[in-house]
Design a protein around this nucleic acid. Sequence first.
DNA 1: CTTGACTCTGTAGTGACTACAGATTGTTAA
DNA 2: TTAACAATCTGTAGTCACTACAGAGTCAAG
Lengths: 156, 156
Amino acid sequence: MKIGELGRVTGTPVETIRYYEREGLLAAQARTEGNFRIYDASHVERLSFIRHCRSLDMALDEVRILLRFKDAPGENCGDVNTLLDAHIGHVAARIRELRALERQLRSLRERCHDARDAAHCGILNELSQPPRQGASNEGGHVHGVHGGARARNAGK
Amino acid sequence: MKIGELGRVTGTPVETIRYYEREGLLAAQARTEGNFRIYDASHVERLSFIRHCRSLDMALDEVRILLRFKDAPGENCGDVNTLLDAHIGHVAARIRELRALERQLRSLRERCHDARDAAHCGILNELSQPPRQGASNEGGHVHGVHGGARARNAGK
DNA sequence: CTTGACTCTGTAGTGACTACAGATTGTTAA
DNA sequence: TTAACAATCTGTAGTCACTACAGAGTCAAG
């Protein structure tokens, strides 16, 4: 199969597949005479693996590690558990952080119920004060609030 | 005051201040003879405002909108409330999404309690299956799991 | 007068894609 | 046969909010 079909089967944009190849995650060994990439069932499985990991918000570096375990079937998989536990920890930490953030935002919102002139807006005035320190996500690798789980919106 | 002091006072890296200037958020009107930027108390307040907004994970485009309200004190501030409500909505949506993600990760983790060889690892096998569809964060602007609230780690 | 701290401009890197431009290859209809 | 069109190719630039330099200039203290 060619790249377009692989994309359709796995729900992955074609350009993302080529990006994974540049990143060394998924290489097509063969090409047609006309230089088109050729894939088979093993590529479908490998790409599904990658996309599943990404849908679980793992970084590509984490996926790379998991792929190494897949490629070495005799190895002990204890480190897989370790990696997953760490990832769960990061997600849990980010949830705690966002909950604190939500509380701060709601208390800020309390300061201005009615629309009036901006000069007396409690929200704008409060924002001019330095922020109080909150959770700071020291060791983790968890994103800010903007952006989103793009992997799943691929088709639209 | 010069850029270093402004950075110290507001807890902002110097290069970030220059970045905000390039982005049109905070301009130093004056320079010294030696071409150094000069700031005063109004800049401290404006930068504090920006940093406070960022510590609440607002995008710079959102901050830009709020700054416009600050710069037009006679205007009605109803849209400030609207913006903040939308932002709270995005944060809440991201929390829901991450909670669903955490459940999926914990159920995945259940599949392999003991370290054994990777060929029979329940986690690796499960990941090779296509993901089930979950929350997808359609309209929002909320990030993935990696990265983090960098604004607060500025000093280290 | 030299050392060192500070500042300047400009450019490149981050992560995980996304979006082109411009060329080539393959498929189908007239 | 030819023309249109879809699919693919390579390569580069853009996204966001910074961060990290390089290389040059400015300034205060010893």
